[in-house]
Design a protein around this nucleic acid. Structure first.
Lengths: 351, 351
DNA sequence: TTCGCTTAGTTATACGTATTACTAAAGGAA
DNA sequence: TTCCTTTAGTAATACGTATAACTAAGCGAA
C-alpha cells in the first residue's frame, strides 16, 4: 500500500461544478497554455505578452467550449458582486416597480444586477436586510427604511457598502457613504392641502400609516390646516394597503356629525382603498367626498385620482447613478449628499 | 538585499475585503483555534470533535467581531448561490409583482433570494438572460419567455440549472429539469368568450399582443367564436401595455360599420388601455361597449373590469416549491412536469 | 562573447469557505 | 509497559478567477 504522502483525489475533481461548465483551466488545457494566459486574454482588450495568434486560439477554444465566466469565483476574487440590492417594503405596491425599472435602467449598462428584498415595512425584516447585506451580497443598496435610522445603517457604510436612501425630506450631509434622494414630502402635502382648501373644503381628514413617509406628509398637511385656522383630522391605520385605506375611510364615514368633505390619503394605495369604501357606501366622488392621494402610481390616472406625482423612475435612476459613482475608485470617501427631485400636483377628477 | 526567494507580500493582506469585515481566520486567531474549527462550529449544530467550552468561545468571538459569512466565498466553495432568478418581461406589469411575492414567500424560508431580470419581451434580452444564467448567478430560474423554446432553454437544464416556465398551456413531460406551471389559457379565453356571447354580443374583437400568452388566448377565443358561427376579429398591437391597448381600441373605433360591441383584451393591461380609449371617445362601459380582460391584476377590481383571474401568487409559490424540490439531492434527475392551476372568471361591471 | 532587451508566456498566490484526512495528547485496558 | 481508543482538534486542499512576480528563449548591439 502506498503511504501517507499519496495525494488522495477527493471525488472526481469536478463533483462540485455543475456538469460540463468549462473553466479557464479547461480552455488552457485545450489551447496548450496556462490558466493565467487565458484569464489575461479573456479580460484585457490588449495583451502585450500574448501574441495575436495565441490570443485568437484561446478565444476560439473558449467559444467552442461555450465558456462562461464563473460569477461567484469572480465575486470572491474581486470582492465585487456587481449587484445592487433594492430594499423596499413591498414590491406589490405599484410605486416600487417603477422605481426598480429606473434602477435597472441605469444599473444594467454599468454591469450591475438588481436584487429585491421586501421588508414588509417591519423593523424585524429591516434588521434582517442589514444582516443580509453584511454578507457581501451586494455592492450597493437602494433602500426605503421605515424604522432604521443612520445609527443602525452606518454599519453598511463602515463596511464599504454605499447606501442610497429614498427619503421624504432633505437630510444633512454626513461623513459616511450614505446618500439620499427625496422629494419634499412635507411641502408636497402642504400644497395638496392648499388645493383642497381652495376648493372650498373645511373638514379635511388625512389617512395616515403608522410608519414611513406618511409622517412627513402629515406634517405638511397639519401645518397648512392650522395656518388656515382649520383643525387637522388624522386617522391612522397600520399599513400602506388598500385594506388599511378602506378601513380608515369606513371609520370616518361612521362618524356622526363632522364627517369630512375631503380625504387626503398619505399614499395612493390608501386613497384607492378609501375611494372604494366611499363608493361602497354609496357616495359619489368628488361630489359627496373629495379624495386625494400621494405617489401617482399608474392606476391613479385610470381612476382619476388627484394626487402628488413622485418621479419614481427618476428616483430609481438617480439612486443607481449615485451608487455607480460611489463605487468608482475613491467614491466612498465623499461626504453623503441629499438630492432633491421635484414633485408635481396632478389634478384629476377625484377632487 | 535579500534575494529572489523573499516572499513579497502583495498589498497589506486585506486590501480586497472591505474594511474590517472579519473572516473565519480572524475568529480563529482571536480564539486560538484553527479556521477549520471555526467553520465547523459555525456550520454544524453538533460538533463531536469540538468540546462545548471551545465551541462557546468561538461563538462568542464571532459575535464580538460581528462575523458574517462571506456569501461569495460560500457560493464558490459550495457551488450554490442560494438565489433564484425571476426572468419576466416587465416588473411594472402589475401581474408580476404578485408572482414575485409568491416566489419570495416560498423561497425565503428555504434560504433563497430572488433576483429580477426584465426581458422587455424581446428575443435579444431573453437570450441575454440565458447567457447571464450560465454564469452561475442563480441555482434555479422561474421564467416567462416569449421567444425562446425548449431547444434554446435546454442548455440551462444540461448545466444543472432547473427552470420553471410560466406557461399558457400544458406541456408534455420531458427528460430535462424543465418544469412548467400554467393555467389553461385557451380554455379560460374560451369561457370568457362564451360569457360575452351569452350577454348577447355578436361582434366581439380581441386585442392581442404580438408575442407571449396572447396566442393561446386568441386560440380559445377564435374557436368559440367560430363554433358560434361568428367571425373572430383580431387586432394586434406590439406589447402588453396600456398604450398598445389604447392604440388598438382607437383603431377599432375608427372603423365605419362593423364596430364591435365587445372587446376582449388579451391581458388586463391591454384591456385597461382599451377602456381609457373608449372613455376618451365618449363611450360608456359596458353600455356602449363591453370590455373584458385577462389576469385580474389588482386594479381590475377597482375599475370593475370583468376578467380571468390567474392566481399569480400561487403560481409563484408553486414555481418556487418546484425549484426547491429540484435542488434537493437527486432532484435534477426527475422528468419535467407540467402543473396546472385553475383560473376563474371574475364578473364585474365592464361586461 | 557578453549583456540587455523583447517576446511569450508561466508560476505562485490570494480571495474566504467547507470538508476530508490526518494527528498529538490523554486516558484506560491488558 | 504497550497498545488502543477517545478527545480535540489541525493541516491540507479545492472551488475558479485575477494578478503580481518571475523566466526561458531568442535576438541585436557593444
Amino acid at each position: 500500500m502506498a503511504t501517507s504522502t499519496t495525494r488522495t483525489k477527493r471525488g472526481k475533481g469536478r463533483d462540485n461544478q455543475a456538469p460540463g461548465r468549462p473553466t479557464q483551466k479547461d480552455i488552457a488545457l485545450a489551447a496548450g497554455v496556462s490558466q493565467a494566459a487565458v484569464s489575461l486574454v479573456l479580460n484585457k482588450a490588449e495583451t502585450p505578452s500574448v501574441p495575436p495568434a495565441t490570443r485568437t486560439r484561446i478565444l476560439e477554444v473558449a467559444q467552442e467550449l461555450g465558456y462562461r465566466p464563473n460569477h461567484p469565483a469572480r465575486m470572491l476574487r474581486s470582492a465585487r458582486t456587481m449587484t445592487f440590492a433594492c430594499v423596499i417594503p413591498d414590491i406589490t405596491n405599484p410605486f416600487y416597480p417603477g422605481l426598480v425599472r429606473g434602477l435597472q435602467t441605469v444599473a444594467a449598462p454599468a454591469g450591475y444586477d438588481v436584487l429585491i428584498f421586501d421588508t414588509d415595512g417591519t423593523r424585524e425584516r429591516e434588521a434582517r436586510a442589514i444582516d443580509w447585506l453584511l454578507q457581501g451580497r451586494a455592492d450597493g443598496v437602494v433602500a426605503t427604511f421605515f424604522h432604521l435610522r443612520v445609527p443602525q445603517l452606518a454599519v453598511l457604510a463602515r463596511k464599504g457598502i454605499p447606501l442610497v436612501r429614498l427619503e421624504s425630506q432633505h437630510k444633512p450631509d454626513g461623513p459616511l457613504a450614505i446618500d439620499s434622494v427625496y422629494i419634499d414630502n412635507s411641502e408636497a402635502a402642504a400644497e395638496m392641502t392648499r388645493l383642497l382648501i381652495a376648493r372650498g373644503h373645511r373638514r379635511i381628514a388625512m389617512i395616515q400609516a403608522e410608519f414611513g413617509p406618511s409622517n412627513r406628509r402629515a406634517q405638511g398637511y397639519g401645518a397648512v390646516m392650522r395656518e388656515a385656522g382649520l383643525s387637522p383630522d388624522f386617522i391612522t391605520d397600520s399599513a400602506y394597503s388598500e385594506e388599511s385605506g378602506a378601513r380608515a375611510m369606513t371609520r370616518l364615514l361612521e362618524r356622526k356629525g363632522d364627517r369630512p368633505t375631503a380625504v387626503f390619503g398619505a399614499s395612493d394605495v390608501l386613497a384607492l382603498g378609501a375611494m372604494e369604501a366611499a363608493r361602497n357606501a354609496g357616495l359619489s366622488i368628488p361630489d359627496d367626498i373629495a379624495i386625494a392621494g400621494f405617489d401617482d402610481i399608474p392606476v391613479a390616472k385610470l381612476l382619476g385620482l388627484t394626487t402628488v406625482r413622485q418621479p419614481e423612475f427618476d428616483l430609481g435612476a438617480l439612486a443607481a447613478e449615485t451608487l455607480v459613482r460611489r463605487l468608482q475608485p475613491g467614491g466612498l470617501r465623499a461626504p453623503g449628499k441629499s438630492h432633491e427631485l421635484k414633485f408635481e400636483i396632478v389634478k384629476r377628477s377625484s377632487v
